[in-house]
Design a protein around this nucleic acid. Structure first.
Lengths: 202, 202
DNA sequence: ACTCGGCCATGACATTTGTCAGCGGGGCCC
DNA sequence: GGGCCCCGCTGACAAATGTCATGGCCGAGT
């Protein structure tokens, strides 16, 4: 019985290469391959893969969101997240989105095939080290608004810009920023953003 | 006549996948595969590849530096940079380092094989759009110190920290930062860092 | 009913950051 | 020698940022 796969990654070359790699295995068949998150669900509905391999960074819809849509629309299809970054927050969010596997791109090549087979067998597959890190990072102490404001900081915008974009007063924005800085135990917004990012508190 | 290839990418899975992809071509043979920049030159010396495919982000030595070393130690080996980011500065630096090809990872899969063959034939291969962007970005107007200070900003450190790290007065640091902000036509250090990054002014 | 927490805001304050003008020293090139 | 530019510094000022106290409005839980 061959395992039908869907591949989603925004980098064409990587997608092609992964496809080539997976095709080397006799029991795998790549039945669909897309480059945007918002094409995942349609492709899965059309081709009925057993497993969807989703990258996180994708245009349209990120892999985590795509996983959630997929779980709702094509529940028979198991989701494995395949990403560059073994960030704690990604893993947590992937699990919440219904993924059953999580593989980082610097794992040895056999890992992927192995993970796919185990997922099909009903197991959950996660790198143990990453799982530990995720637990260590704990839940995000940031409130929704604090997250919003921190995220808006990413572009380098000033308080005024953020306030405008979020329809808040400037003072409020500064307050949230201050709270975020306190909770991350840093000394300014950019450090706060960096550690919140690392901890997956986004 | 088969073309001998060396593959350097820090992500095992990607390296394996690319290897699989390239092996599909009858005239290619992957003779070496490494995961660190500082292993490139030795591997090339040992296996005498015709073409080295180097990723930029690598531990030990980045792909650009590795290209320079390779050009000096194994001049017969042509260098193709294979990277995620089609950033103007990368291309410029790649060319300065002696690379003859530059392929981005979201190019269509055939592009890579094509680029390799053309490089072997003596051509230079660069995405035209990227080449144009690189010319548009122009040479860096930043002075050495301005670069240093901007780079130190990356971690999110404040003026005082940067001054300490660079053995400068705080006022001087602020002046350089101000100059960098002016030259990038932005409004604060973090925007300045972002655009300088994009333009390859590092 | 009461409390707690998130949300949004204000005002006041200290600190940091960005800008500007100006100084001296050195290297390079005409 | 005289320009020119980079380097490094200072001092002064305006603007942005971070902190704190305080208040009101909600919804969820006890």
């Amino acid at each position: 019985m061959t395992i039908r796969l869907l591949l989603a990654d925004d980098q064409d070359l990587i997608r092609g290469a992964l496809s080539a790699l997976l095709d080397l295995e006799d029991d795998f068949e790549v039945v669909a391959s897309v480059g945007r998150g918002d094409e995942v669900a349609d492709a899965a509905a059309a081709h009925r893969p057993d497993v969807a391999l989703l990258d996180i960074e994708m245009p349209g819809l990120d892999g985590l969101a795509a996983a959630a849509v997929l779980a709702a629309r094509v529940p028979a299809c198991r989701v494995v997240i395949l990403t560059t970054f073994g960030r704690a927050g990604y893993l947590r969010r992937a699990m919440e989105a219904g993924a059953v596997g999580f593989v980082v791109k610097d794992a040895p090549p056999e890992t992927l095939a192995d993970a796919i087979r185990r997922v099909v067998a009903g197991e959950r597959v996660v790198d143990p080290a990453l799982a530990a890190a995720t637990l260590a990072a704990g839940d995000s102490p940031l409130t929704g608004r604090e997250r919003d404001v921190l995220n808006a900081t990413r572009s380098g915008a000033g308080v005024a810009d953020i306030a405008a974009r979020l329809y808040l007063s400037e003072g409020t924005v500064r307050n949230y920023l201050s709270a975020a800085i306190a909770k991350t135990a840093t000394r300014n917004r950019i450090e706060a953003l960096r550690v919140a990012d690392e901890r997956g508190w986004l």
